[in-house]
Simulated scan of single mutants.
Amino acid sequence: MELPPTPPMSLRERKKAQTRRTIQEEALRLFLSQGYEATTVEQIATAAGVSSMTFFRYFPTKESVVESDDYDPLIVRLIEQRPTEEDPLTALHRALGEGLAVVYATEREALLVRTRLILRTPALRARLWENQHSTERLLADALAARLDTEPTLSVRVIAAAALAALTTALTLWVDSDGSTDLPALVDQAFLTLLGQ
């Protein structure tokens, strides 16, 4: 499965994306080897071959190096591309399924590490609600945009329920240490929401 088309990046944008990816990869490697709390921004910057100042240009905090990803814009694009005749929950289910298939195929281990860190590190877990609230708003706005309307209460409830289903599936996946199939767990969670 391929990502929806995006505009081509300039050389400068590609270099910036590579630097960002390198910082995040080195951070995850260090968090795994020596623990989140024991790892400093300076250590991450050194491992990535950048200065601390460069680190902070890409990530405002140490927490953000774990929390930051490109998944929300991908999901928003996929939701907006769903047929308007699909009900909102089905559109979310299919868009999340498409996006997850891409992420799971290319970044499965990084997703597992990041999700495990977020769920098991108190400093990161404390920020989870704030991040989920932002994602919920993005999902509701994307659902409303595909119907050219404002996000109603029902659309926001559907977005919140879908996000809860996704979070529950991610938690079970982490609890299994990645041995279960995440896309199948997400499908099961959505089928539960759909009453099937």
Rank of each mutant, 00 (worst) to 15 (best):
T115I: 02
T54F: 05
A169E: 01
I79N: 05
A140F: 01
R114N: 14
P7I: 08
T149D: 00
I158H: 00
S33W: 03
A165H: 01
A144G: 00
R156K: 10
T61C: 00
L185S: 01
P151A: 10
H93R: 15
P151Q: 05
G195N: 04
A91T: 03
L153S: 05
V66I: 07
R82T: 10
V113H: 13
Y71L: 08
R114W: 04
R20S: 13
V103P: 03
V50D: 04
T168W: 14
P73C: 03
R108S: 07
H93V: 14
A142Y: 00
V186M: 07
T171Y: 06
L117Y: 11
R21C: 06
R12E: 15
A45Y: 08
T90E: 12
E37T: 10
Q24K: 03
F55P: 09
V50N: 10
S176D: 07
A145E: 13
L28K: 01
R137Q: 05
V113Y: 14
L170H: 01
F31A: 02
T167C: 09
A27P: 01
L3K: 13
L3W: 03
A105M: 08
L100T: 00
F190P: 02
L117S: 12
L96F: 13
T46C: 07
L119C: 12
R21F: 14
L11V: 12
P5H: 08
E13G: 06
T149C: 00
E150G: 00
V76Y: 05
E136L: 06
M1H: 02
E37L: 08
I23V: 12
Q24S: 08
A184F: 05
Y36N: 12
L32P: 09
L163Y: 02
A140Y: 02
L117V: 05
E67S: 12
A27V: 09
T61Y: 04
A91D: 01
T106S: 13
D148N: 06
P7A: 13
E107T: 05
T167Q: 15
L194Y: 05
M53V: 07
T149G: 02
G49K: 07
T171A: 11
R21M: 13
E63F: 06
K16D: 14
V50W: 11
R108W: 11
E130G: 14
Q24W: 07
T106E: 06
S52D: 09
V50C: 07
R108D: 09
E2Q: 04
A110K: 08
P83D: 05
E37V: 06
L194G: 03
L138F: 11
D72F: 02
A47F: 09
A101H: 05
S64H: 11
A189S: 04
L111S: 13
Y36Q: 12
Q34H: 08
D69S: 13
A140C: 03
S64R: 15
R94D: 13
V174A: 07
A105Y: 08
P73E: 10
L166W: 03
I158E: 03
I118G: 12
K15P: 12
L124K: 15
T152Y: 06
F31Y: 05
R82M: 06
L111F: 09
D148I: 04
E107M: 11
T135A: 13
T39G: 00
P83F: 02
L182N: 03
L30M: 01
A123E: 14
A159H: 01
L139R: 01
L172G: 00
P83Y: 03
R114S: 13
G49C: 02
L111H: 08
F59M: 03
T22S: 06
H93L: 11
T180P: 09
P122K: 04
E37I: 15
E86D: 15
T135S: 14
A126R: 12
